[in-house]
């Protein structure tokens, strides 16, 4: 039953970028499953590879400077082995994409309606009339009050929230089975963010789509996602249902991140936040073997880490990378770092 609902299955996906003649992994050996009717959140800080993973899946990389390996089965076909023209049949039709910055993601010189109907041009046989009606219907579906007026406008005439709704309308125009939303609310105010997330959830329910929600915002994940994958340094370090990961976080990184969030009941003058030691290494300086998070928890003895960390199942569906979670404890709050 589980297999039937799987929309996208990533097996051992790695993506390496060429920097000064050498390839470095931005995403390493990721295994993930996205199911129908489900929101999978991929969460992590900048540079963890979450966006790269998304663009890898839909083949938006310049293959001259990128090396991709592994498998990404989507409806029985491996996306990573598809030709450009095969991918063009999938993108926009079966996989819809939503990007972070809604202003730059829309062509400044085209009217909203034209940008929506463009996706219909390539994937449907609708007449001009039908496309027009479909565009208006989509605008209404994403919560735009005056679809007719908005359809005739240019991107710069809309507010940030409106633009993001338009982007969503484009992404869902062909009722895709899978929607990949890369930081869809980062540039928006919280109230608008809440509305956009509602729209996404409604659409998912209506279309029975699967959604990959990529974000750095733990709050957004906790409020929206069904499943969570936490990424650090190109790897998935913990995954499971939202309840499992947020209710019972196991990996030192997940625990540290949650702990570094501002808490309301702290003293405004004296209480400090938890700080993770060190910083995320740049892609060229990333350790290639062993536990990549180990340098940031140096008080945990090396023997606690696996040589080649693998995922360990804690309970059904809840997995954690490396065995060090068993021995992890927080060192007392310390502010110093250089």
């Amino acid at each position: 039953m589980d297999e039937e609902n799987t929309l996208l299955e990533l097996n051992n996906v790695s993506t390496a970028f060429k920097i000064e003649g050498q390839y470095y992994n931005a995403v390493s050996h990721v295994d993930l499953k996205v199911k129908k009717d489900e929101i999978l959140a991929i969460v992590g800080e900048s540079g963890c590879g979450k966006s790269t993973l998304a663009t890898t899946v839909v083949g938006l990389h310049d293959m001259k400077t990128t090396k991709i390996s592994g498998e990404a089965f989507f409806e029985g076909q491996d996306l990573l082995k598809m030709s450009d023209s095969q991918l063009n049949d999938v993108r926009g039709a079966k996989i819809g994409m939503i990007f972070q910055d809604p202003l730059s993601a829309l062509n400044p010189l085209k009217k909203i309606e034209d940008q929506i109907s463009e996706v219909l041009d390539y994937h449907t046989k609708m007449s001009t009339e039908e496309k027009h009606n479909r565009a208006l219907q989509l605008l209404e579906q994403v919560g735009i009050d005056e679809p007719k007026r908005t359809a005739r406008q240019f991107p710069h005439e809309l507010s940030g929230g409106m633009r993001q709704r338009v982007i969503i309308a484009i992404a869902i125009a062909c009722k895709p089975d899978l929607i990949i939303a890369d930081e869809p609310t980062t540039a928006l105010d919280v109230t608008i963010q809440a509305q956009i997330l509602d729209v996404l959830r409604d659409i998912q329910k209506e279309n029975h789509a699967g959604i990959i929600l990529i974000t750095h915002d733990l709050g957004v994940v906790a409020e929206t996602a069904d499943e969570v994958a936490v990424m650090y340094a190109g790897e998935v370090v913990e995954c499971g249902t939202t309840e499992q990961v947020f209710g019972d976080p196991r990996h030192p990184y997940t625990r540290s991140l949650l702990r570094s969030m501002p808490q309301g009941d702290m003293d405004v003058l004296n209480d400090d936040l938890y700080v993770i030691q060190g910083s995320v290494p740049s892609i060229e300086k990333m350790p290639q073997a062993g536990d990549k998070f180990a340098p940031r928890i140096p008080w945990i003895p090396a023997s606690a880490h696996e040589k080649e960390p693998t995922m360990h199942e804690i309970s059904a569906g809840h997995e954690v990378r490396c065995t060090c979670y068993k021995d992890f404890y927080f060192k007392s709050l310390e502010v110093k770092d250089v």
Binding site: F99, D101, S104, L106, E118, Y122, I170
Partner: peptide, 10 residues
Amino acid sequence: DYVRTARSKG
């Protein structure tokens, strides 16, 4: 970004 959007439209 809008060209990336166009690519993602297929």
